[in-house]
């Protein structure tokens, strides 16, 4: 590339160096400048890495300082109180925590079996030419913004449930002794169950793509050996692939759970915003994120704002723990795969 003229190393490194190379003194200067630039760049990247750490600590510190007034007023009772009354400035987090946990549980209960079965289909049954297109379609589902799920849930899915699934549940499971209270009440359309179902659709791609990846990472020798002793496809998946991929699958499920717990828009549209704990999954409720999204800009008074930030802090702590466990498990399986 370079002309055949003789050049020293520094000249090759920098065009300016080539210009200045005539004089030894200026060359030393160029070298100094290079050394300085090198050190500066190194510290710059290091500072950026620290900025990421700073970001997370900033989130934690600002949430704690914002939540302090509410936590000081209500103490630990904030976690177990069911009251939510902006007029008398009396707040409790329990209904929101309950809604967050319940909707996420519904989502995981549905998304995990379905996601695992899709991963089973993609890795063992699907013809090779179909694998990529289906995989991409599932991943596109993950890219759709949550507000789209929200608007779709509100205008299409909730009315549909109101007319079909919910009356069906009320008329069948609603009469079974023992679990009847779970399915009591009128079919509102919106409510905990609807929010849970929407969340299930949202996290399905996460469960699927991670399960597919860890299923793919199972050494073929193991599967071939199982087939060799006469296992059926299902037995290979059930007794060889699943046990081998267990840790990774659990990591993926925790990751999906983290998403479901913190999801805001998809839930806010269809949850119904009722600060109470109902036995029925058909009843409207609220989640932490939906409460914050709905009430934060309209919150009057410091204590109200602070109570909402305290809710955010609780959400952050819960998701932090769930995500940390997920990362730890996924890291373990990554190490094993190597």
């Amino acid at each position: 590339m370079e002309p055949a003229r003789r050049r020293s190393v520094v000249d090759l490194a920098l065009p300016q160096g080539a210009l200045a190379s005539a004089h030894a003194g200026t060359r030393a200067k160029v070298l100094d400048r290079l050394r300085l630039g090198d050190t500066a760049f190194r510290y710059l990247t290091r500072a950026a890495a620290f900025a990421v750490l700073l970001l997370l600590s900033g989130v934690i510190v600002s949430l704690i300082s914002g939540a302090l007034p509410a936590l000081r007023t209500f103490g630990l009772g904030f976690l177990i109180s069911q009251r939510w009354n902006p007029v008398t400035d009396n707040f409790g987090a329990l209904p929101a925590i309950y809604g967050t946990v319940l909707t996420s549980a519904i989502a995981i209960l549905i998304a995990v079996p379905v996601g695992l079965m899709i991963a089973f289909f993609l890795t063992e049954l699907c013809p090779p030419w179909l694998r990529r297109p289906i995989g991409i379609a599932i991943e596109l589902l993950a890219g759709i913004p949550s507000i789209i799920y929200g608007i779709w849930g509100l205008f299409v899915f909730a009315p549909f449930l109101q007319e079909t699934l919910q009356p069906f549940l009320i008329n069948t499971l609603g009469n079974v002794p023992g679990i009847a209270p779970l399915f009591a009440g009128p079919p509102y359309g919106i409510g905990m169950l609807t929010a849970g179902l929407i969340l299930a659709i949202m996290v399905l791609p996460f469960v699927t793509s991670i399960s597919r990846d860890v299923f793919d990472a199972v050494p073929p020798v193991l599967k071939e050996a199982a087939y060799g002793v006469g296992c059926t496809t299902w037995e290979v998946v059930r007794y060889v692939v699943l046990p081998y991929a267990r840790v990774g699958v659990i990591g993926g499920v925790m990751l999906a759970l983290g998403r479901a717990l913190g999801e805001t828009m998809a839930v806010t549209f269809v949850i119904g915003n009722a600060h109470r704990i109902s036995a029925s999954v058909l009843a409207p409720g609220t989640t932490i994120s939906a409460t914050i999204a709905n009430e934060f800009t309209e919150a009057v008074g410091d204590l109200y704002t602070s109570a909402l930030i305290a809710l955010g802090l609780i959400l952050f702590v819960i998701t932090f723990i769930v995500l940390a466990v997920a990362r730890y498990l996924l890291l373990r399986i990554e190490r094993r795969i190597g």
Partner: peptide, 15 residues
Amino acid sequence: NDILLSAPSIVVGLF
């Protein structure tokens, strides 16, 4: 960074 990657975005709004 992995935690931040999946942290609830509404918490970022509060921050």
